[in-house]
Design a protein around this nucleic acid. Structure first.
Lengths: 131, 131
DNA sequence: ACTAAATAGGATTCTTTTAGTCCTATATTT
DNA sequence: AAATATAGGACTAAAAGAATCCTATTTAGT
């Protein structure tokens, strides 16, 4: 349906939250502040951590903090960290896998061009512009 | 997952087919040529017809033909004819419906800007550029 | 040492969306 | 009348997305 997933929505809200308070915030705090299901947000934060966008601190007084300035975090990176790829078709993301008309297909290449434009759009906007 | 739906993929293939042969083609012919499930394509053609992108002729010797030149059919129109909207979030498409954090949400507006850029991208490419 | 509060992450379930199929009706040409 | 199209409703199957549950580990404070 051509939408950002909830994971991405929640991730953006969380990063916005972290950018605003510029310190450590817990997943619980963010979930409460933005009215997001805690368990789901927890996974999102783990993904962002794995990607290196944020850092995490375990234990009491723990939480998450940005590893980068908001200006240095393009939306494209957030989306990709959250296990999606900015691609219009499967074939433009994964190649022939799973498409039985890969060879004869005549829309893949032109769509590839479009896709690149979209990728540029998502690269051009950063967390800083959400503030 | 941020992909075009099969409906849109099939619709683009069909329009490309019609643009190339610039005459009447049946759904069966297009389905065979592009290796698309016939039943599904039939619905897609009906939607394109309803939108006025193509015209249809019933009965033997019937089929479909473009109502517009390929240059006059932007992808955005095709996508919308096929029951999708080019929107990044539900709220940016339907307003407050179904989102319980509509009022407090702070990512909707900036995403709206992005969305508009995307819409422009999809408006800027036409069926002619698929040829 | 113990407890409380965090992150880490596996497994599962529920819901929604998308894709695909089936069947019948109607129109048109031969 | 028969054959070949589109029109469209109803249904089923498969996949993806969202949400929940449970347990392990880490760490600060007492």
């Amino acid at each position: 349906m051509f939408r950002l997933s909830k994971r991405v929505e929640y991730g953006l809200m969380a990063l916005q939250h972290l950018a605003r308070r510029s310190g450590v915030a817990t997943a619980r705090e963010i979930a409460d502040a933005s009215n997001i299901p805690y368990d789901l947000l927890a996974k999102v934060m783990q993904s962002l951590k794995r990607d290196g966008i944020i850092d995490s601190y375990q234990g009491v007084k723990g939480g998450y903090a940005l590893m980068l300035t908001p200006e240095a975090i393009p939306l494209k990176r957030v989306i990709e960290a959250l296990e999606e790829d900015v691609a219009l078709t499967d074939c433009n993301a994964n190649g022939a896998q799973g498409c039985d008309r890969f060879d004869t297909c005549t829309i893949r290449e032109p769509l590839g061009g479009l896709q690149q434009k979209m990728a540029e759009t998502f690269s051009g906007m950063t967390i800083a512009q959400l503030l």
